[in-house]
Design a protein around this nucleic acid. Structure first.
Lengths: 245, 245
DNA sequence: GCTCATTTGTTCGTATGTATC
DNA sequence: TGATACATACGAACAAATGAG
């Protein structure tokens, strides 16, 4: 079955990796699921245990799986990649501690397509969107005003009361993963600075024109599929945005 | 020598990893150097080749080494980690191409200690610094004004004419690695927004008060030792700063 | 262009240790 | 305690790339 020679120079362990990754990306195995033990893979594909170990440990390194000795091998969800993926943390200096944050949902509504955003999300030009506006508060008041756009078709029912209450308590990416099986694999960002406009100044309780950091974020799930476009306006007068890489 | 049992539960391959890493971090093997072949490690430490392979491939995954089939195993320099470490790229939109950049050296001089910076660089409060000011130009003019501070003691002769000409042609981190054996392992950043002050506005040829992205960066080499503090002011009106993670 | 020694890459298989339930 | 699952370690055989001669 999975055998070398013939005319395919791809290593066996690599092809096994691909078949496992496919089952994850197709949703056959979901975040948190236990996949079959190494022994089973070895028997089914007539491979040595070492080759199976290599395939799995590569997927562990790539972040798709994690292993617990004595228990099994499991599919990684976003929450486990969080260290790498978590959005900006807020610090007042390099040696500061991170501040606490809470989220207020301002609005969640269905909107008509927005050409530039539909294009970024690789959607049909006529696909409708969800628009979610939120305010992030730190100790001394509102600091980040963000608006997210998601495909309506992919995330039905996101505007029901159930989700509205969840959104203030659980990170948006957790909801999308748990309820829709869409884990976050990576993000892209464009960062700029702008003076606060009327609406943003109002939300953040600052004078119009105050310099803000703008972060446009595009989030991707399996197979490089974008699923959220977000633009955030950050008041960094008290706390700046921290990143390590 | 490297043997299990006794009363040390640490895996053998892990201890071999540590001894190799030590030789790299102490400068015994420098970026670009070839380390001894697997066979030698196996013989010297009386280990099987598989165990040596595991230790080395872990260090490859951690980014300390890279291997070329048929040639050998080599110590990684910053230039090979560049994909992960390179500073912000400039894009006008998510699907844009990266713009070209050139660097102009404004000034390189010796300065007295600056308490806040000496503390961040973990230097003695009386250690003198180098101050390097540069201007990054993109197609449509100057866009980033940055000032770096480095320990004078660690980077002697950085203000000689030889380095002055190099700094405009080669990235600063390459110079520090090649001439002083200081590769970059990771960076920390604090990001904020500010209105341009007098001096910065002058350099970037923009009105005073124009919103700019400020990036404070702390660069680390082996063993979590900071070696550079840099503050950059970025005019993002044409091109924003791009990151993927 | 070819051969050969060297070095890493792949795959196999076995035995034993250790964590979980 | 036993069954199960992953972890460590050993070692052999062959493949594939590199570079020197």
């Amino acid at each position: 079955m999975l055998n070398r020679k013939s005319d395919n120079p791809t290593p066996v362990y690599f092809r096994l990796q691909s078949t496992i990754k496919d089952k994850i990306e197709s949703g056959h195995w979901k975040p948190g699921d236990m996949i079959p033990p190494e022994r089973i893979f070895a028997e089914e594909h007539k491979l040595s245990i070492g080759t199976v170990k290599k395939a799995i440990s590569n997927l562990v390194n790539e972040g798709f799986l994690y292993r617990i000795q004595g228990k099994g091998t499991f599919v990684t969800g976003t929450y486990l990649r969080k260290d790498k993926l978590r959005y900006y943390r807020c610090f007042s200096s390099f040696d500061d501690n991170e501040g606490d944050m809470n989220i207020k949902l301002l609005e969640i509504e269905k909107t008509k397509p927005i050409p530039a955003i539909n294009r970024l999300l690789k959607l049909h030009p006529k696909s409708d969107l969800f628009k979610i506006s939120r305010l992030m508060n730190f100790s001394k008041g509102p600091r980040i005003f963000s608006t997210s756009y998601l495909p309506q078709k992919q995330f039905k029912d996101l505007d029901t009361p159930l989700f509205r209450t969840k959104i203030e308590k659980i990170a948006l990416y957790s909801i999308l993963e748990e309820s829709y099986g869409v884990p976050t694999i990576y993000n892209q960002e464009l960062i700029g600075a702008e003076g606060a406009d009327n609406e943003t100044a109002d939300h953040l309780k600052i004078p119009i024109g105050t310099p803000l950091v703008t972060i446009e974020m595009l989030s991707f799930t399996y197979k490089d599929r974008p699923y959220e476009y977000r633009i955030s306006y950050c008041n960094t007068s008290e706390r700046k945005l921290f990143r390590e890489y």
